[in-house]
């Protein structure tokens, strides 16, 4: 892992300081390293999301790669069209990467996403999931977890629906490559991006991305929360290849109880013991299912080796 981190030093920085993300934003950190890994020959399509703001209101730019902004539902369509246009104009190697929040993926962008996946367009779809419409004021999305507070599901009537399983929706489209990742496991994230760059066809990333103001967590806990989400098995690091082959990348040595993770966040402050039990049971059932479905292998994520 030390190698991964230090190898990133050699790549050009694609994000400028002075962008307008909140302190402790994990999405901006994730995109910083994804952009470095993708390199210069990339067009980034950004649907309406926090990143529309972070990337800079004109004439400023926070990213040193080409960026195309587009409306909420049309992200996948714009990216598909761009890719086709680039191929037509003689730069078929230019990567088209779509960056969308959970709203632009789980809810509003879903039809475009489904269409592009079905057509197997040659684009990388990156969903950074902060589990609500954070940019517009923390409204609930279908990625908002069960029993979480949002401004549209205020306490005590907290969100009653479980989170949508986007990975399995995408797996049902039989796309070449689906991966989940989080910045707390950098070598895993970077390796998956590099792997996706080698693959042709539709590639989908589901990236877990804590949001300190929206989640009511402390800004320095972003990485810790990401790590805990994996250690509790709430957000398993996995890959789905060809929509069939499930690979669990990381099997935690010791499972952290989900309560430790929930207690760090203000959005779960009205949680009752019954909720915690249900969340724990649900994630264990999910984990059992994944373990049965997967070819196991442990990702070598060793820093000082």
């Amino acid at each position: 892992m030390k190698k991964t981190i230090l190898s990133q030093l050699e790549l050009d920085e694609k994000l400028f300081s002075g962008h307008s993300a909140c302190p402790g934003c994990a999405a901006v950190l994730t995109v910083r390293h994804i952009a470095r890994t993708l390199g210069e020959d990339t067009v980034l399509v950004i649907t309406a999301s926090c990143w529309s703001v972070i990337a800079g209101a004109g004439p400023l730019r926070a990213l040193d790669i080409s960026v195309v902004h587009c409306p909420f539902p049309s992200g996948a369509a714009v990216a598909s069209g761009l890719k086709k246009g680039l191929q037509r104009l003689g730069s078929p190697e230019t990567r088209v990467v779509l960056l969308a929040g959970d709203g632009g993926t789980f809810d509003i962008g879903l039809q475009g996403l489904s269409g592009a996946a079905e057509r197997n367009e040659d684009i990388i779809f990156i969903c950074y999931d902060n589990e609500a419409y954070m940019n517009t004021g923390m409204q609930r999305s279908s990625a908002t977890p069960y029993a979480s507070y949002s401004t549209t599901t205020p306490a005590p009537l907290v969100n009653k629906n479980p989170k949508k399983d986007i990975v399995h929706i995408m797996a049902a489209h039989h796309v070449p490559y689906i991966a989940t990742a989080t910045i707390a496991y950098p070598s895993d994230l970077v390796a998956k991006i590099k792997k996706a760059m080698e693959i042709r066809g539709f590639r989908f990333f589901h990236i877990f991305s804590p949001c300190p103001p929206g989640w009511g967590s402390e800004s320095h806990k972003s990485i810790e929360l990401s790590r805990m989400a994996v250690e509790t098995r709430l957000f398993p690091l996995m890959e789905v290849i060809g929509g069939r082959e499930v690979v669990l990348n990381y099997l935690p040595e010791k499972y952290t109880p989900v309560e430790d993770y929930l207690r760090l966040q203000g959005r779960f402050s009205s949680l009752e013991p019954g909720h915690v039990m249900m969340i724990q049971e649900n994630l264990e059932r999910n984990w059992d299912y994944l373990q049965r479905a997967s070819k196991r292998y442990r990702y070598e994520d060793e820093y000082w080796s």
Binding site: H19, V43, L89, E93
Partner: peptide, 25 residues
């Protein structure tokens, strides 16, 4: 094989002029 640039025009995506470095956050 990659098709030639049939339209004969350069494809350019404009970028913001100024890096956000001017914002001293």
């Amino acid at each position: 094989p990659a098709p030639d640039n049939v339209l004969g025009i350069d494809f350019v995506i404009s970028r913001g002029l100024e890096p956000t470095l001017v914002n001293h956050t």
